[in-house]
Amino acid sequence: MTTTLHDDAGPDTVRAPSPVAARLHRTGVRVLSALGVIWAAATFTFFIQALLPGDRATLLLNQLTGQIQERTAGELAPINARYGFDDPLLVQYADFITGLLRGNLGMSYQLYKPVTEVIGDQVLPTIALTFSALAVAWVIAVVFTVATVKRVPWLSSLASAIEAFAAGLPQYWLGVILLVVFALGLGAFPVVGGTGLASLVLPALTLGIPLAGFLGQTIRSEFDAALDQPFTLTARMRGMGDTQVRLRHVLRHSVLPGITLSGWAMGALFSGAVIAENIFSRPGLGKVLVTAVNSRDLPVVCGVVILVAVIYVVANLLVDLAYTLIDPRMKTA
């Protein structure tokens, strides 16, 4: 973190001619570089599709008919014409990028529907799951750190051991245990399917608990340092109670790296969602993706990968921009 560099606001920190212009410039640069990353990610998936080993038209035709055989040129011609596989690579690439700009990700080989439609039908449950997991992780991490940092030594070290353990839990294992204990054993939650709120609890915990471990670890070290800061001492001298100090002063300073981590975690949460949806038989992108991988439906897989890359980049851009709002010291950075 560079925050310490700006702690003492000396005269040299107001070097920029106009703070507003500097901020606009900075925002512009960030947005441009985010767009660049998205473009590169899309290009990467295009070339993976185009340079696939084997002839794509043969693969597609064999998949449609469920056979594996060599195809004659006559059989392949309509497919090549329809998907433009015969065009020069650059033309195909230009088509792909213009299609992407119009929100067109190509056709699914298997479902015979536009990829955007396939994804659009299933994306909402996955987004609901991802954001509930993020919320669950934050609640657990904040309550846990506020309660345990710098308490009796054994409690603090036990708590950080629990955090390390939680952070290392594979989602598939945690999910299975939650399923066995709470859904099958205690019957507290539905075992399969559904989109109701009750069916969201266990999958969200499956993704949220490991993330809470990571969040807790980052928040803990900042929290620990902030408790020794002069402003904490000042607050205590004014007669503020310990819980009040922790909640109103220390917590605000220690959540910053956690917010950065949340942006980073978006990609991991989406992969986790694929696993959680499979364990709990939830509808969503996870199911679509696994089916697509098994049937080698490359456009759908690439579409999901591009979507997740876009979500990741946008989330990190928002985190970056939000930083200056949360921490005014970063304004001049």
Binding site: V37, P53, S271, V293, L298, C302, V305, V308, Y312
Partner: peptide
């Protein structure tokens, strides 16, 4: 930076598809 935008599991699934 671009590679970071692909989660490990999704990148792996892309490879398995191919």
């Amino acid at each position: 930076e671009v590679l970071f935008a692909f989660p490990v599991l999704l990148l792996a699934m892309l490879f398995v598809t191919i």
